[in-house]
């Protein structure tokens, strides 16, 4: 990542973190606050980050634009940030005017290669959201006391948290892997996206279960931020191709290569 991309991501992270933390309970948010938040996101230029170079975007390579998508996943708020980024990219690709305003309901009518990019964007969002969930959970078990000590002092809690951290590390690695593969020659980018969706979808299942377990009942209430991430990930993991569909697609490609081609497929993936 060069210096300019580092500045862009720091700026995006600061903006989205501030907005997400101030959003409170989304259902109780005044419309004026929602509109002001959206305007701040619009003004930042972030929504154009996935536009191809020359279409008035930020001039970022796609892999770095997807880095911003991951940040949006980490600081998930009540605005359709990623869906609007995708809708604007696809509109530009299709030679349509890039519509102003939020793309509620996400991009519609995608070509297959656009659906694949949307699927990868979901993978990156999930990786980012899992990072946020790990951070929230780690902080919570350090603060919450039961039996006269912080939850973090119990070995059962430490080991659950370690499993969560392993899943988050794997999810982030899988997202990185797929983002690198779509930029590299000599690899099948669709296979890489399928690998990321299969692995990250599983990390979501295991990771969200642990995060809810460690947060206890408080994480299950509407006022708590945890479910903003977990319920979003339970949708994302099956959008733009379900996890099962992507997983079977990978499996079909691997089985077709047979046992003799298996290791070569692994190295070439």
């Amino acid at each position: 990542m060069d210096e300019i991309s580092a500045i862009v991501s720091d700026t995006a992270r600061r903006l989205l973190r501030g907005l997400a933390e101030a959003a409170g309970t989304w259902e109780d948010m005044p419309e004026s606050a929602w509109t002001a938040g959206w305007q701040a996101i619009e003004d930042s230029g972030l929504l154009l980050a996935l536009l191809p170079d020359g279409d008035g975007g930020l001039g970022l390579p796609l892999s770095e634009g997807l880095g911003l998508v991951r940040i949006a996943g980490s600081h998930h708020g009540p605005w359709p940030v990623v869906d609007t980024m995708l809708a604007r990219r696809f509109a530009a690709e299709n030679g349509q005017d890039v519509a102003a305003g939020p793309a509620a309901g996400g991009p519609s009518e995608m070509a297959p290669h656009q659906r694949d990019i949307a699927a990868l964007a979901r993978a990156c969002q999930m990786a980012g959201a899992l990072e946020a969930v790990l951070e929230m959970t780690t902080a919570y078990v350090g603060e919450r006391h039961q039996f006269g000590r912080p939850l973090a002092r119990f070995q059962a809690i430490q080991h659950s948290l370690a499993v969560l951290a392993g899943e988050v590390a794997a999810a982030c690695a899988a997202a990185d892997f797929a983002c690198q593969r779509i930029a590299a020659e000599g690899h099948d980018p669709i296979l890489a996206i399928g690998i990321a969706r299969a692995r990250i979808g599983e990390a979501v299942s295991r990771g969200t279960a642990i995060a809810h377990q460690l947060h206890g009942a408080i994480g299950y209430v509407r006022e708590h931020r945890l479910h903003r991430y977990t319920t979003a990930m339970w949708r994302w993991r099956d959008e733009f191709g379900t996890q099962a569909w992507w997983t079977r697609r990978v499996g079909m490609a691997v089985i077709a290569e047979g046992s003799d081609g298996f290791w070569s497929s692994t190295v070439a993936a």
Binding site: R199, T247, V250, T266, A269
Partner: peptide, 13 residues
């Protein structure tokens, strides 16, 4: 297909 896809995703990751 589902099982192999999942295992392969783990392996490559």
């Amino acid at each position: 297909r589902n099982a192999v896809g999942r295992l392969f995703a783990h392996l490559v990751t």
